[in-house]
Design a protein around this nucleic acid. Structure first.
Length: 418
RNA sequence: GGGGGGGUUCCCGAGUGGUCAAAGGGAACAGACUGUAAAUCUGUCGGCGAAGCCUUCGGAGGUUCGAAUCCUCCCCCCCCCA
């Protein structure tokens, strides 16, 4: 069993900020003395069931807590989700049904167990509707009375929106309070969050104190940029690599990150020790280094992390085949197609085919794709948008470099015109 | 309650009677190149079998030969004053 001192070293490694370090040390000492594990809190949005590499940073830290004997409580914010984190500043979210939330919670549990120890003694997954749905209006007023408007508006999202004359709804002001109240309910000793959660977590400390609960230690973790290398990784931006994705997706998406992000991904996504990250930075800086090779190592490492080494090797091989040599992927979809407005399977209009195969959303788009030389049939570029294709025999349809569809005669139905 | 500023295409944003399917940027897609699905460059980027036509600028009406642009009513957002 690691001593409190050793635990402190392990747990604070890789964090951006710990508020406050002394409190963490004290809590670790007390936990050992009393033989009581610390309660470590991590919240999740109920609406986005795909966990990605950005989440994984926190999950790994949770795992470290678990391995040191502490208990993790994951909170699915079904009630806070009704509000929406003001930092997202997104449109009013569609409210999820209870069934959807439950289904998402299950998905979370499955994905979590890729990194976190699912042992019920070490992991508890709860929904905050459990307590919020029981509250009366008087309870809500009581909570609202624990904090002031001026302090809530300190938050820079609110400040920015105020300055930019963007709307702030009253219920959004409740978001930090609700998140804080979660910490009261579960008596959190520690809360993990990305740096952007600093404000919310600090409010949680105040709310806990107001309810007579010892304030939690806040551990802030770095935010990982998405595959675009600019915005933080998130599902809504579409720049994410999911921890549950197939090997070829993880590999390919990794290869699409900007070169400047390579070292950062080694650090935050592949969790290399600092010394090795330094070495990689040095390697990348050397003029004789081809960044692609380093990126390949990164992609392989990430696939190995979430699958295994064999999968990584296979993914790399397939990637090389498709992109370096213009070859074919291992699996090509063979969808059933209904092509409208065509009379004869022996001469199907190419534009209609591309559209019905789902490679373009309109005839116009299909036409453009063809004119730009992005469409191939059996490997041959088709440039004539008026061309027809015989579908009597299997055809390999390709749009761009990476989208393939195999068209089988038996799968083709000639439908009515549109 | 009073005064003022806004709502434009996937997003941000320009556009104040015809030359507007609507500048510019971003995203996305394609091509070239490459060292890769990086970077860079070029092109495309509402719909229609493409001819011209149809639909689109918060909503509904109206003026006009012609409306994103003008008028009326309505909805929504923001600021200032109370």
């Amino acid at each position: 069993m690691a001593t409190p001192k050793e635990q402190f070293e392990i747990l604070t490694e890789g964090t951006v900020e710990v508020i406050k370090e002394e409190e963490l040390e004290e809590k670790l000492v007390r936990a050992e003395r009393e033989g009581r594990p610390l309660v470590v809190k991590q919240g999740f949005d109920p609406s986005a069931p795909d966990l990605h590499l950005g989440h994984a940073i926190g999950l790994r830290k949770l795992r470290q807590f678990q391995d040191l004997g502490h208990k993790v409580v994951v909170i699915i914010g079904d009630y806070t989700g009704m509000v929406g984190d003001p930092s997202e500043r997104s449109e009013t979210r569609p409210r999820l049904t209870h069934e959807e939330v439950m289904a998402n919670a299950r998905t979370y549990q499955i994905q979590l167990s890729k990194i976190v120890d699912p042992d019920p003694a070490k992991l508890e997954v709860v929904m905050n509707g459990g307590w919020f749905s029981e509250m009366t209006f008087a309870d809500v007023m009581n909570l609202a009375g624990k904090y002031t408007v001026a302090r809530i508006l300190e938050r820079d999202d609110f400040t920015n929106r105020w300055q930019n004359e963007l709307p702030i709804s009253i219920h959004e002001l409740f978001y930090p309070l609700m998140q804080g109240y979660d910490s009261v309910e579960i008596k959190a000793d520690v809360e993990l969050g990305a740096t952007e959660q600093k404000f919310n977590c600090l409010v949680a400390r105040e709310i806990q104190k107001a309810y007579g609960v010892a304030p939690e230690v806040v551990m802030l973790l770095p935010v990982l940029e998405g595959t675009d290398g600019v915005k933080r990784m998130s599902k809504s931006t579409g720049n994410y690599i999911g921890i549950d994705e197939p090997p070829r997706e993880i590999y390919g998406k990794t290869m699409s990150i900007p070169d400047e992000m390579i070292a950062r991904y080694f650090e935050l996504a592949a969790w290399l020790p600092e010394s090795e990250v330094v070495a990689i930075r040095k390697e990348l800086a050397a003029p004789e280094t081809n960044p692609r090779d380093v990126k390949r190592r990164l992609a392989r490492a990430l696939v190995s992390l979430y699958h295994d080494d064999d999968a990584a090797a296979t993914a790399e091989e397939e990637f090389d085949r498709i992109f370096a040599k213009g070859g074919l992927p291992d699996e090509i979809p063979e969808p059933a197609l209904t092509i409208g407005g065509q009379a004869d399977i022996a001469s199907v209009w190419i534009v209609a085919l591309v559209k019905s195969a789902g490679l373009a959303s309109s005839n116009g788009e299909a036409r453009r794709l063809i004119k730009q030389g992005g469409v191939r049939i059996d490997g041959e570029v088709v440039r004539d948008a008026d061309a027809t294709v015989s579908l009597d025999e299997p055809r390999l349809l390709q749009a761009g470099k990476r989208r393939f569809v195999r068209v089988l005669p038996d799968n083709v139905t000639l439908g009515e015109g549109e």
